Structure formats: C-alpha cells, structure tokens
Amino acid sequence: MKVALLTLGDPATMTGGYLYHRRVADRAAANDARLDFVSVPTWPWPLPVAAGPRLLRRLAQLHPDAVLLDSIAAAYVGPWLPKKGLPPIIGMLHQPPGGIDHEGLRRYTQQILDRRAYRFASKLLIASDDLADTLRAAGLPADLLTVVAPGRDPADNPVAPEGDLRQGRKAAVLSVGNWVERKGLLDLLEAVAALPPDAVTLHLVGDPDVDPDYGARVRVRMKEPDLHGRVVAHGLKTPAEVVGFYRAADVFALASVREPYGTVYGEAMSAGLPVVGWDAGNLPHLARHGVEGLAVPPGDVRELTTALRSLAYDEPRRRQMAAAAKIRSESFPNWDDTARVLFTEIRAVVEETRT
C-alpha cells in the first residue's frame, strides 16, 4: 500500500508532529506499506496556498493508494479540493482547525480552510484523546475520528549527557520543547527562580531559535542574578540524546498552555520520571495529579513552584511518583503499536473505497 503524506516544509524538523511521521514512516515496510513525503513550501502566510494546485498534481502523479493530510498543511490545499484523480484523503490531526500557534485573522482564516479540507476526508486520525474531545466539541463528525496516539519510546541506544545533572542540588529538572511561547518557558523560569538556591538545576532541551523574539526573552531572563548557575540550555538534541537526558534527570516539567498530546510527557513517564505541568491539554489524560505527577492550575506560577519544591525535597515521594509514572506509561502505545493502528486505519479506508 502506497501512502503519500502531505506536510509542511522539511520532514526532518524536530517537533512532535514531524517526529511522529518519521517514526511511522520507518515502520511502514513492517506494515506492508510505503509512506512518501510531499511538502508544502514554507513561504510566509498565506502564500503557500498558491502552491496547492501544483502539490495536488504531484500527489496524483505519485498514484498513491491514499493521501495522509497533515493538519499543518490542510489549509494550503483546502481551497483546491475536491481534486479529480486523487485517492481517498485521510486527515492526520496534531492540532485543531486554525492551529495552536496563531491568533487573530490568521487563526480565523486557517480555521475555515482547515475545515474545508477535512470535509473531503474519509477519516480523521487524531493524535490524542484531548484533541479528539476538542474536535467533537467543535462539531467535527465523531464517526470519522480515531485516536492514534504517539509512541512512548523515543529512541533506542540512548546517549547519556556528561556529568551529574543535579550539579550539587537536590534534583535535576528536565524540560524538553522548542522555545516558543506556548511552551511556557518563562513561567518555568519564574518558578525555578522562586525556589531556594539548593533545590533544582533546570535543564532545557530544544531549539532556542524557532521564535527569535521569544528566545531572546528567555535568554535575558536566564541571565538575571536569581537564576545564575541554576539553568542549563542544551539546544537541540537527537532523539537518542533526549533519552539520555530523561534517564539522567529526576523530574520532568513542561509549563505548556496548549499541548494537543504532549509526546514528551509520555516519553518522560516511560523513562520513570514524575511529570509536572499545567492541568490543561492532554496532561490530565496521561498523568493523575498526585500519583504520576503534579498538574497545577494553568498560569499559577506559585503553585508550579510549590510542585517543584515538593518533588525536589521529598525524595521518597518523588521516587514513588517515578515508579507510578513508569507503570502508567506501560499502558501507552509504543511506536510499533502506533504504526500498526495507523496503517490498519488507512488500509481499511482504501479497501472500503475500492468496494
């Protein structure tokens, strides 16, 4: 079975959605399938919409059995559907219509175009239960939605970071995510700054240059005296290196306000880390407050500080939550499971179309 995945830009981009696609592509052959990437150019909005007809022609020329439409590319082909000669279209949604990183007119317009594209989809595969709930509430047909959650296993052969991540403090806190505003890095820095100096060393793993303005604000805050020597920025790391950080840390924290799945939460739990974040998005679907982690009211930096303090100074509680997180993660799919479900769903649509 040949599947063409229509996405945006470089498939090697290091974010959760792109990693999801590459990991299922790596497992396509094991599922008697092949997945080819077709990319919308990363021109400024809304110029990529003009590339829609050319991309649809290219898809038709590939003669796939199905088209998998990435949610970050849906708006760019929405105006040009339906297109004769295309096989069944299956949406792969990592975000709701309109996206999660846009506001105002951009979000409103993209929402309209996304919804138009999904009207021509035979199936919508959704990356999380939380996102599926959001889509049902927004009026998307419930019978078209199937959750295909990402795997919990980020990579084999982990590469350990150098040195002791605690650096003489009570605990090492790890946060994995690119430096964009919705990841809440400034809130996390404020929470760490409010802790006693011996409490935690915070390690940031992720691309600091995705949003230059926000990245500059994070760098300025890190340099202030109350955080001196308490935060280490490691930049972008390979999946194997990220696993090494998970295994070397004591606590995982991500103060993200909008996380449709939060793959890194599942990965951290699989490595045996208690997780800390806002009681929002998909985190409540993954970790129970007080059992596998601590989920505090969104935007309440004081409560975030309290959560980090409790895990830094109460090692028995931290270990208990770590063990619970590891056990809980065993109920999450691994990437072989994810790929099997995804290609099974696509194959069912293809076979139904042929009958």
Rank of each mutant, 00 (worst) to 15 (best):
residue 18 Y to G: 00
residue 19 L to T: 14
residue 19 L to M: 13
residue 19 L to P: 00
residue 19 L to V: 15
residue 20 Y to H: 15
residue 21 H to C: 14
residue 21 H to Y: 15
residue 22 R to S: 05
residue 24 V to E: 07
residue 25 A to L: 04
residue 25 A to G: 02
residue 26 D to A: 15
residue 26 D to G: 08
residue 27 R to K: 11
residue 27 R to Y: 05
residue 27 R to W: 01
residue 27 R to T: 04
residue 28 A to H: 08
residue 30 A to R: 15
residue 30 A to Y: 04
residue 30 A to G: 14
residue 31 N to Q: 12
residue 31 N to A: 09
residue 32 D to I: 04
residue 32 D to R: 08
residue 32 D to W: 00
residue 33 A to Y: 00
residue 33 A to M: 09
residue 35 L to K: 05
residue 35 L to P: 08
residue 35 L to E: 05
residue 35 L to S: 03
residue 36 D to F: 03
residue 36 D to I: 02
residue 37 F to H: 10
residue 38 V to C: 13
residue 38 V to H: 09
residue 39 S to M: 12
residue 40 V to F: 10
residue 40 V to A: 15
residue 40 V to W: 06
residue 41 P to H: 11
residue 42 T to W: 02
residue 42 T to L: 13
residue 43 W to M: 11
residue 44 P to H: 12
residue 45 W to H: 14
residue 47 L to S: 06
residue 47 L to P: 01
residue 49 V to Q: 03
residue 49 V to R: 00
residue 50 A to T: 08
residue 51 A to Y: 08
residue 52 G to C: 08
residue 52 G to A: 12
residue 53 P to G: 05
residue 54 R to T: 13
residue 55 L to Y: 10
residue 55 L to F: 11
residue 55 L to R: 03
residue 55 L to I: 14
residue 56 L to D: 02
residue 56 L to I: 12
residue 57 R to M: 02
residue 57 R to E: 11
residue 58 R to S: 13
residue 59 L to E: 02
residue 59 L to G: 05
residue 59 L to N: 02
residue 59 L to P: 01
residue 61 Q to D: 14
residue 61 Q to G: 13
residue 62 L to M: 14
residue 63 H to K: 14
residue 63 H to M: 06
residue 63 H to I: 01
residue 64 P to I: 01
residue 64 P to L: 04
residue 64 P to E: 07
residue 64 P to H: 00
residue 66 A to V: 13
residue 66 A to L: 10
residue 67 V to P: 05
residue 68 L to P: 01
residue 68 L to Q: 11
residue 70 D to R: 02
residue 72 I to S: 11
residue 73 A to H: 01
residue 73 A to E: 04
residue 73 A to K: 00
residue 75 A to H: 10
residue 77 V to L: 08
residue 80 W to E: 03
residue 81 L to P: 09
residue 81 L to G: 09
residue 82 P to M: 07
residue 82 P to L: 06
residue 82 P to G: 10
residue 82 P to D: 10
residue 83 K to I: 00
residue 84 K to V: 07
residue 85 G to Y: 08
residue 85 G to T: 11
residue 85 G to D: 09
residue 87 P to V: 03
residue 88 P to K: 09
residue 88 P to E: 07
residue 90 I to D: 04
residue 90 I to G: 08
residue 91 G to F: 01
residue 91 G to Q: 07
residue 92 M to E: 06
residue 92 M to C: 12
residue 93 L to T: 04
